[in-house]
């Protein structure tokens, strides 16, 4: 196996430090959302790219993590960090249980079952007024604080969310390079072969769904504390599809590619803001183009194109 490269991390950290020196609050805010959304996207990439199982309900884990961490903190009166961990563990367990139910299915059926799960959770968030505040949501969520120090502004939250994101990337990379990662790829290629080697493909799938759910839950909890306000809107099926788009642009089974996908989608969203509601046309077209014509992700396809052109150019020169 290839050794884990340290260069991407150094480049990323250098870029982030540079961004801090630019002093722009707008860019910091955008970068924070990239970090928060990168976590569920990487989780989805572990499940879809590496293990070959589709999920259209990842927004539900994200939402359960967000609402769960806040509710646990207020209801049990525990410390918010402990509540985050508890919420992540509970969502992990829920994902494991869901896996037990849905991984009897494959392909279209799996897609629709996970979509159903996502919609059920969204309906629950809207309908359980007493707990979630219904469509109005919950306001006045306390910002993160550690030893009496509050993390409120974009700049203060920045190191926390990016720290979590880099940890998430590191763990995901370690996972896919480990023997478990090989099994994951095996399940994606051919579950029967994995079973014949004495490993249970269904257990693998459940495990990856659990890890993936925890990624989304942690991101949701950070989101709740950062934004300070929760409503069911950001956790609907639309967000699951956006995650799908990020992973597709990133090339499915490429963790750094997925980070690029998240940043790309965030930038495109910002550029399309003047279009208002019409931006989803662009996202839809991007999704189709990414899946149909850029099978290894946008970046790889562009590189391949550039390389091809360079080769042609060199040939014509010589």
């Amino acid at each position: 196996m290839k050794q884990q490269g340290i260069w991407p991390y150094l480049l990323l950290v250098a870029g982030l430090i540079g961004l801090q020196f630019s002093g722009s609050n707008y860019l910091t805010n955008l970068a924070n959302f990239v970090a928060i959304q990168a976590l569920p996207a990487i989780g989805l990439s572990l499940l879809m790219g590496y293990t070959g199982q589709i999920s259209l309900g990842h927004a539900a884990f994200y939402g359960l993590g967000a609402y769960g961490s806040v509710l646990l903190a207020t209801l049990l009166g525990v410390n918010m960090w402990l509540a985050m961990v508890l919420a992540a563990v509970l969502v992990g367990i829920a994902a494991w249980a869901l896996g037990w139910l849905v991984f009897r299915l494959e392909g279209h059926y799996l897609a629709m079952a996970t979509l159903g799960f996502g919609i059920i959770v969204h309906v629950i968030l809207v309908e359980m007024h007493d707990w979630t505040g219904g469509p109005n949501g919950m306001t006045g969520i306390e910002p993160m604080n550690l030893f009496g120090h509050e993390f409120y502004s974009d700049k203060q939250v920045f190191p926390i969310v990016w720290g979590a994101c880099i940890l998430g990337i590191f763990f995901a990379e370690s996972l896919v390079r480990s023997p478990v990662g090989l099994l994951m790829r095996g399940v994606s290629e051919n579950g029967r072969v994995v079973a014949s080697l004495g490993a249970s493909p269904d257990r693998m799938k459940r495990l990856v769904l659990m890890v993936s759910g925890i990624y989304a839950a942690v991101a949701g909890a950070l989101y709740a504390r950062y934004v300070g306000y929760l409503s069911p809107g950001p956790f609907d099926v639309g967000f699951s599809i956006k995650l799908l788009l990020m992973v597709a642009i990133g090339g499915f089974a490429q963790i750094w590619g997925v980070l690029f996908g998240v940043a790309f989608v965030a930038l495109v969203s910002e550029l399309l803001k003047p279009l208002g509601g019409y931006d989803i046309i662009v996202f839809g077209v991007l999704l189709v183009v990414a899946v149909v014509y850029c099978r290894d992700g946008l970046l790889q396809t562009l590189f391949a194109g550039v390389r091809g052109t360079l080769r042609l150019a060199r040939k014509s020169v010589s």
Partner: peptide
């Protein structure tokens, strides 16, 4: 390819909805 088929048809749906708004 099943997964790509699902994603592509979802993308088509999103485009149709966007076009309908437009």
């Amino acid at each position: 390819h099943v997964t790509r088929g699902i994603i592509a048809t979802i993308g088509v749906g999103v485009v149709l909805q966007g076009a309908a708004v437009l």
